[in-house]
């Protein structure tokens, strides 16, 4: 009995954690299903979840086919913005005046409405991958930059003073203290940005693409197929959840001390 409870504990704890979410989503779907079947609303206006699921299965090849370019644009755009944010965050950390010079520009870049920018970027750079990468980078770059810069700033002043007394230079202090101090901020930014990234990619495709979830949604809408629009929405939601889960997993791997600290809290030796 003991061994089986040990083996099933992670699954059980996962169920306990995910339980409320499963129940609330389930209830929502149930209400929707009942409303769609009994209110007499037409499936071309509001299809029932069962119909959406059924159509998603029938059209799964097209959905997968269109999901792949979206995933590619999301990941490539995010990789670009991450690299740029990392390089610039270091520059800003080493040359503080740069921060005052550049941040206003980036803040303005965040206020640009995607609806207006996406068609322009497509107009300038065509229907290929480039405008998608640019839009994804545009919406994710600033949150990542801010997360990193604030993370560096969160380094304890005493740690810097101690390292300097040990004889460390600025670069050494950055690598030994400022960079690791920024990790929690980095992952918080990552979790937020990755959801923006998917939305950004879909928006870019909506504005013009040969393939992708965005253009798939647009075509389905124009063909009066809300069931397929919703099926594509479901795919993009699943994609976002998977990416979000990956960042959580990555954080656990990159910051093993966090869990170690939580697990032993309360059972430490007395002094």
């Amino acid at each position: 009995m003991a061994s089986s409870s040990v083996a099933s504990r992670p699954i059980a704890s996962l169920l306990v954690k995910a339980g409320p979410a499963i129940i609330s989503v389930g209830l929502l779907l149930l209400a929707w299903e009942l409303y769609a079947s009994y209110s007499g609303i037409k499936p071309t206006i509001l299809p029932a979840p069962s119909r959406v699921f059924e159509q998603a299965m029938l059209n799964r090849e097209a959905l997968v086919d269109n999901a792949i370019p979206t995933i590619r644009a999301t990941l490539l755009g995010f990789a670009c913005s991450l690299s740029a944010a990392f390089a610039l965050s270091m520059l800003v950390d080493f040359f503080q005046p740069l921060r005052r010079a550049l941040f206003p520009v980036f803040i303005v870049s965040q206020t640009l409405p995607l609806v207006a920018i996406a068609p322009l970027v497509v107009l300038w750079f065509g229907f290929g991958l480039a405008p998608k990468i640019m839009l994804v980078a545009l919406v994710t770059f600033f949150p990542m930059l801010v997360a990193l810069v604030e993370g560096y700033e969160a380094t304890e002043a005493e740690v810097g003073q101690m390292l300097r007394a040990m004889g460390a230079g600025r670069w050494r202090i950055f690598v030994l203290a400022r960079l690791p101090s920024a990790l929690p901020y980095f992952f918080a930014g990552l979790r937020i940005s990755i959801t923006y990234a998917v939305v950004g990619a879909i928006f870019a495709e909506y504005a013009g693409a040969a393939k992708g979830l965005g253009i798939y949604m647009l075509n389905a809408k124009n063909n009066f197929r809300p069931d397929l629009v919703l099926a594509a929405v479901g795919v993009s939601a699943a994609l976002t959840l998977v990416l979000f889960g990956l960042t959580v997993l990555l954080q656990r791997l990159a910051m093993p001390w966090e869990r170690a600290g939580k697990e032993t809290a309360g059972k430490r030796p007395w002094r």
């Binding site: 304890e156 003073q161 101690m162 007394a165 990790l183 910051m255 001390w257 600290g261």
Partner: peptide
Amino acid sequence: HFAFMPQRDALMPW
């Protein structure tokens, strides 16, 4: 000359 121990322990959590 100095080995300095700051006011908080300044251990690196990572």
